[in-house]
């Protein structure tokens, strides 16, 4: 077990015993995991595990490496030419940075929602069906079913069921983001990564997304990066605080926000920097 896990276990035994996260099996686990952009080490030897079925929030000032770490989980950083990873990151028992890993399968099992709603300039239906079609589902009935269930899961079905064939770019920002969520769900992933999913939305749309996260808790392992500490406190079970590429503290959300163990965490959540 890594040091961070030990620390977290200690914390939960010591104070808040309302839920023992260590009992949940780890879904994603990192060991001395680092990410480099050229010579710059954006994520420095992080050890942590994200338990199955939980919502984990990652907070920290901008540029602290939280987004990079998130994107490392489905290897989105591969798109950046100068980027490489060190250490191991395990998903479902496999080190996903091994050479013979099928990145496409990995991304099908790890869904992602991005900072800005990035719907394709296609119809709503085609947006949702994009992933299933990639998996080779061609049967119209199956696709219809997936589209409907995903849209329902993302609580947007009632708003769009009459205009599935219209261009998705015509929807409001909040709707678009929920559509992105539905699109990610349509692939039936096990993990949902969310990279500041509400930073481009107004408060009302933000509430809706947060409610959705609450509903999806337990069905999916959710990892959410957020700038907004209140949001982390509202939606997550666990919170990780990162600073300058290092994982400073990782623990139950309530404990981290009320009784942080580290000085830097306390400074950050009380607004002394960041």
């Amino acid at each position: 077990m890594s040091a961070a896990i030990e620390m977290k276990r200690a914390s939960s035994f010591a104070g808040h015993a309302e839920e023992d996260f260590s009992l949940h099996p780890a879904h994603v686990q990192t060991e001395d995991f680092s990410v480099f952009y050229g010579n710059f080490e954006a994520v420095k030897k992080v050890n942590c595990n994200f338990p199955e079925g939980m919502v984990t929030a990652m907070i920290g000032p901008s540029g602290c490496g939280k987004s990079t770490l998130l994107r490392a989980i489905n290897r989105m950083n591969d798109l950046i030419p100068s980027c490489r990873a060190g250490g191991t990151m395990t998903f479902d028992g496999e080190n996903i940075y091994r050479k013979d890993i099928d990145v496409v399968s990995l991304r099908m099992r790890v869904g992602m929602v991005f900072q800005k709603p990035n719907v394709f300039p296609k119809s709503i239906y085609d947006n949702i069906a994009y992933g299933p079609r990639l998996q080779g589902i061609k049967n119209r009935n199956d696709l219809d079913e997936i589209v409907e269930s995903s849209l329902k899961q993302a609580a947007i079905w009632d708003e769009v069921k009459d205009r599935l064939t219209t261009n998705a770019l015509g929807m409001s920002g909040g709707q678009q983001q929920r559509l992105c969520l539905a699109r990610a769900l349509a692939v039936k992933p096990e993990i949902l990564l969310m990279d500041e999913p509400t930073s481009a939305l107004d408060p009302k749309a933000t509430t809706k997304i947060e409610d959705l996260i609450g509903q999806l808790r337990g069905q999916y392992t959710i990892i959410i990066v957020t700038h907004n500490m209140q949001q982390a406190a509202r939606v997550s079970d666990l919170t990780a605080f990162m600073y300058e590429g290092t994982l400073i503290e990782f623990g139950a959300t309530r404990q981290l926000f009320t009784r942080p163990r580290e000085k830097q965490t306390e400074d950050y959540i009380t607004g002394r920097f960041g």
Binding site: N74, M76, L79, V104, S105, R107, M108, V110, G111, M112, F114, K116, N118, V119, F120, P121, Y130, G131, L134, Q135, C180, R183, A184, V187, L193
Partner: peptide
């Protein structure tokens, strides 16, 4: 963002 979205859904 389009490219990232497609990639994250498992497109090569």
């Amino acid at each position: 963002a389009y490219k990232e979205a497609a990639m994250s859904l498992g497109a090569g």
